[in-house]
């Protein structure tokens, strides 16, 4: 594994010039890094305009399982099962089906440079999007784990930064899943919403899951970033967006909340209420929102009818 990423990166550079179709070197790296075994702790921070959030986290990945700790609790991951802890009890959520992953051809590998980070030999890699730097990764040569991840906004500023401050490759730990769960729920496929497009700004709607009640969760991905759009009835209460800030896209107003790992956007179209959550940068969010159902109010007659018939 030691020089594998460097080799992958270099061969990709030699074989295909930047921006020439889906980048196999980058795709292969993203796939292999998902399974890399390590223990690390770090900080993740997200900034959009005046909104900013940060948190610390600790990750251990070994034997196909991951354990994540943060100030807000813990998670265990194994295959498609995510177990979260509340008090002394574990709750499992399992994804039943999902589509194959593919990387958008807008991304390619840019320059790579050998470097040292956390005292380890590493490779710095730029991820290019249509000729501009979208992300910078500093990848540990031995494990292929990204020791530093920076995602840039359209203005070149850092939108999200995730930096490990402690790192151990291939830790010798025995991880065990909880012996039982208070609840074990499955995320099942549901009917795709006819109001949402199959793709938006290069993000494919890969899966739709049913929500309790009558809503749905549409999952969109371009292979590098991803987001979910939750669509529910127009009258549904949108969780706690009271502290959110407003922003405009093409004259329409949305509410956003920035957390360390995600950006949340809420709006209501004339038909439905929406919450978008994901890790995509602000310029992507704005481009995506312009292709989703737009915010708006219902006409007087519709409001009157809905009051009559619920």
């Amino acid at each position: 594994m030691a020089k594998r990423i460097a080799t992958l990166v270099l061969s990709a550079l030699v074989v295909m010039p930047a921006a020439a179709g889906a980048d196999e070197g980058l795709a292969e790296y993203l796939e292999s890094a998902m399974d890399a075994e390590f223990h690390g702790s770090g900080v993740v921070m997200c900034t959009w305009g005046a909104d900013s959030a940060a948190t610390t986290y600790e990750v251990t990945r070994s034997d196909g399982m991951s354990m994540v700790q943060g100030p807000d609790g813990g998670l265990m991951l194994s295959g498609a099962l995510t177990a979260s802890k509340a008090g002394a009890d574990w709750y499992a959520l399992e994804v039943s089906e999902w589509s194959a992953w593919s990387l958008s051809d807008r991304y390619s590998l840019g320059d790579t440079t050998a470097t040292i980070r956390l005292g380890r030999s590493a490779t710095e890699v730029n991820v290019m999007e249509d000729g501009r730097i979208r992300a910078r990764l500093v990848i540990d040569d031995e494990s292929t784990v990204p020791l530093l991840t920076e995602v840039f906004g359209a203005d070149g500023g850092v939108f999200r930064l995730a930096a490990l401050v402690e790192f151990v490759a291939a830790p010798a730990v025995d991880m065990e899943m909880p012996e039982s769960f208070m609840e074990h729920e499955m995320l099942m496929y549901g009917e795709p919403s006819s109001l949402l497009p199959d793709s938006a700004f290069g993000y494919r709607r890969t899966d739709t899951y049913a929500l309790d009640g009558s809503g749905s969760q549409a999952f969109y991905s371009d292979g590098l970033f991803s987001f979910s759009v939750f669509e529910v009835s127009r009258g549904a209460a949108p969780g706690d967006f009271t502290d959110g800030s407003s922003f405009e896209v093409e004259g329409a107003t949305y509410t956003r909340i920035v957390t360390a790992s995600n950006v949340w956007v809420h709006w209501r179209s004339p038909e439905r209420s929406y919450v978008l959550v994901g890790d995509l940068p602000p310029d992507h969010i704005e481009a995506v929102l312009s292709e989703l159902p737009r915010p708006g109010t219902r006409g007087v007659i519709m409001r009157w009818l809905s009051r009559l018939f619920g």
């Binding site: 990750v59 994540v68 957390t259 360390a260």
Partner: peptide, 9 residues
């Protein structure tokens, strides 16, 4: 997913 998810929202 490559850097590991973060707990919470």
């Amino acid at each position: 997913s490559i850097r590991g998810p973060v707990v919470g929202r």
